[in-house]
């Protein structure tokens, strides 16, 4: 069933996580147990049921587009791992 298609290394890559070999082995086994349980969902007849993303009916929530006090540039950078000149410093992404 599901776990046949489940390759922990591939999914970890999608999730931008690098796993140690030990983690990969452990998660592959533990998540296989979880999938075996989750596969119960296939028993349920859901034909004709609308998928509900939210259980409380809320539609078209708007608010006035007004300015409010918010972070200063300094505040926004307070937790930056690296910063300079009011900017976040990141590795080069274009040559």
């Amino acid at each position: 069933m599901a776990d046949q298609g489940f390759d922990v290394a591939y999914v970890a890559k999608l999730a931008r996580l690098c796993l140690s070999e030990e983690e990969a082995r452990l998660f592959q086994a533990q998540l296989a147990d979880v999938f075996a349980h989750v596969d119960k969902l296939r028993e349920v007849d859901v034909s004709g049921v609308e998928a509900a993303a939210h259980v409380v009916p809320l539609f078209n929530v708007y608010r006035e587009d007004e300015t409010r006090p918010w972070f200063t540039p300094e505040g926004a950078l307070e937790n930056a791992p690296r910063q300079a000149n009011g900017l976040f410093i990141v590795p080069k992404v274009v040559e």
Binding site: A2, G5, F6, V11, L14, A15, L31, V38, L41, R42, V44, V46, V49, E50, A51, A52, A53, V55
Partner: peptide, 21 residues
């Protein structure tokens, strides 16, 4: 990430939303 990934979204995520309903 897996239950949202291409090919598994319907089988898991979408089905789960319907059972939630």
């Amino acid at each position: 990430t897996y239950v949202l990934s291409s090919g598994y979204y319907d089988a898991y995520y979408s089905t789960a939303l319907k059972i939630r309903e």
